[in-house]
Nucleic acid binder design. Structure first.
Lengths: 204, 204
DNA sequence: CTGTACCGATACGGCCGAGTACCGGTACAG
DNA sequence: CTGTACCGGTACTCGGCCGTATCGGTACAG
């Protein structure tokens, strides 16, 4: 974002300026996200990340100017497409598979969302990175699945429950630890889909 | 909880030891909870609470030993029974009224739950106070409403959706700000009840 | 072989918040 | 009227973390 736009013949030299390999960078990102999950955003320190990755605080500050920028970069690097390739030809089976897939990483993502939920009020860049990394890809993928169900005629277009499927899936996912202390696992989510989501959509 | 158990004739004098009236105490509690909602738990300072209530930090530390104990006391004082008196003789109408009632204070309670969600990992007393103040009363009241519906025969006992009603109500309530940036209002929640909760329970 | 520039380590300045100590004012008891 | 004890205000210590500066080591270029 700073000087990577150099188009001259020194671009190779410019990319050689940092000896941080992409693998090393991912170690930094994994470390800071893990510490956020464990202790919360405010309790995470740059010293702690440096110590746990055996690098120097200087190294971190050479790459990223401030702590929120560093965390935002870690979130953006963590962004990935969810629910990819879920297309079984049946909305009910697609939703069950979403539930199974969500159960796998629900613990990590829920912790992150919980820990950063209030930090985003103080840094707009952090807020946008969080949305792009953890919220929008999942919503979009879920809406794709629902749209295909509508196109196949399984659910009538404009069905009132359609608008609430993302909210109730992520709502149940996120609120489970608060209610019972346990994180939502795949089994719990699949049963939720069968007991609530499918009946609400008019699918048996 | 400390010396209020004195049974001697000096109990009047003992209760007179503190010149903090219950109304004054509630000002402290309201101030700290409001600041937590605005800035998060870690950003709230005892100096800030003292300044906003025009009292001295000494006064706060004379009554409560540490910051988490002070916050826990504020939460316990804020505990109240929710959904009280909701009993219309119809489960559908009861749930609609729950949605309307929840929309009124969802903003304040959701902010509190969000702000304290990660602070509870570092203080067990705080965690229990939060559960007793904001989670358990609402769950219990909701289950009472559901139980009456079962007793009236509106829903079969053991209906699979029954277990998920509290989770999906609070889930949708809490996750709305994350998804759209807006807090859930009464209208949104009532439509959710009609589009999802009632069909899932087999009520029209 | 020599220079360059990045890395890791350490130390430091500045700031801020938790919790403590002290002091004058004042309400209430007797 | 006099004493007691609590309240509010201020100043203080202590510790922690952000961000910066500095220095020796080392990998790579030419």
């Amino acid at each position: 974002m700073t000087s990577q736009a150099a188009d001259g013949p020194d671009m190779v030299a410019a990319s050689r300026r940092s000896k941080i390999t992409p693998e090393r960078e991912r170690e930094f990102f994994d470390a800071v996200l893990e510490q956020i999950r464990e202790c919360g955003y405010d309790s995470v320190t740059m010293d702690g990340v440096a110590a746990s990755t055996r690098c120097s605080k200087s190294t971190l500050y050479r790459q990223w100017k401030t702590k929120p920028q560093f965390v935002a970069a870690a979130l953006r690097a963590n962004r990935r497409v969810r629910f990819v390739g879920i297309d079984n030809g049946s909305l009910a089976e697609d939703l069950r598979e979403v539930a199974r897939a969500a159960g796998d990483w629900s613990r990590k993502d829920t912790k992150l969302l919980q820990a950063l939920g209030h930090a985003v009020h103080s840094d707009a860049e952090l807020a946008q990175a969080l949305r792009e990394a953890l919220v929008e890809p999942e919503i979009a993928a879920l809406q794709d699945i629902l749209r295909r169900g509508v196109e196949r005629g399984e659910v009538a277009e404009g069905h009132p429950a359609l608008d609430y499927v993302p909210a109730m899936m992520f709502g149940v996912l996120r609120v489970r630890p608060v209610l019972t202390g346990e994180y939502a696992d795949a089994d719990y989510l699949v049963r939720f889909v069968e007991a609530v989501a499918l009946p609400a959509l008019g699918l048996t």
